[in-house]
């Protein structure tokens, strides 16, 4: 009797250990099964995941930024605007601690999109980046038209954004920090206004980096 308890316990611990060893982050978004013909002529079912489509924005230096900048890197994306007085300062205060942790790791980047297409031109973003203390290639601040940015936020990154006459700042948006892997898939979403979720993001970046080595 005692022996069986012991073996159960061993099994339990082994299961736990194996779980933590190959921990993987979930893959978010839509997915579809696709039948692909292999080289040997046999049909195989492959899963196609939702990815971030190509984009072309102006960054804080007024140069064009596309997905080429993120090739072979993982990145954290968010949506904000410079005159925001509600959640953005907290989001970027927290995101900056993530930036500080991964400052020296060339495989991690940051991408902040402004949703204020009227005011946040590249020169405004530049000033903002300088004042936040992160005017570097690693953290890109990008400007795009409403037609470019809003559908990308809502359909691809699954972050709600919009103009809002009711709010004093003129816009509303969610404070998600979205973790994107090297294959442009969404691997995590963290509330940038909550310190404990941002801590989770820091840990998940490590897991994602290990996974994609």
């Amino acid at each position: 009797m005692k022996k069986s308890y012991f073996s159960l316990l061993v099994l339990f611990i082994a299961t736990l250990a194996s779980c933590s060893n190959d921990k993987k982050l979930p893959i978010f978004g839509e997915r579809e099964a696709k039948i692909i013909k292999g080289a040997d002529g046999i049909d195989r079912i492959d899963t196609v995941y939702q990815t971030i489509p190509n984009f072309s924005f102006l960054n804080q230096d007024s140069t064009v930024l596309t997905q080429d900048a993120f090739k072979g890197k993982i990145y954290v994306a968010d949506f904000f605007f410079t005159s925001c007085t509600t959640i953005c300062p907290t989001m970027h205060r927290n995101l900056k601690t993530v930036y500080d942790d991964y400052k020296t790791n060339p495989d991690v980047m940051f991408l902040s999109h402004t949703i204020d297409f009227k005011y946040d031109k590249p020169s405004v973003l530049k000033k903002y980046a300088e004042k936040l203390g992160v005017d570097v290639a690693k953290w890109q601040f990008v400007y795009g038209s409403k037609d470019q940015v809003y559908p990308l936020a809502e359909k691809s990154y699954l972050v709600a954004v919009g103009e809002d006459n009711q709010s004093p700042d003129g816009y509303m948006h969610q404070g998600w920090l979205i973790l994107i892997d090297k294959q442009k898939r969404m691997r995590g979403a963290y509330d940038g206004t909550k310190a404990e979720q941002v801590e989770q993001l820091k840990k998940d970046i490590l897991i994602l980096l290990a996974e994609e080595k």
Binding site: P89, H92, R93, K131, L132, G133
Partner: peptide, 8 residues
């Protein structure tokens, strides 16, 4: 009360 970079 630590502020935020040079923003605040």
């Amino acid at each position: 009360g630590e502020g935020l970079g040079e923003l605040a």
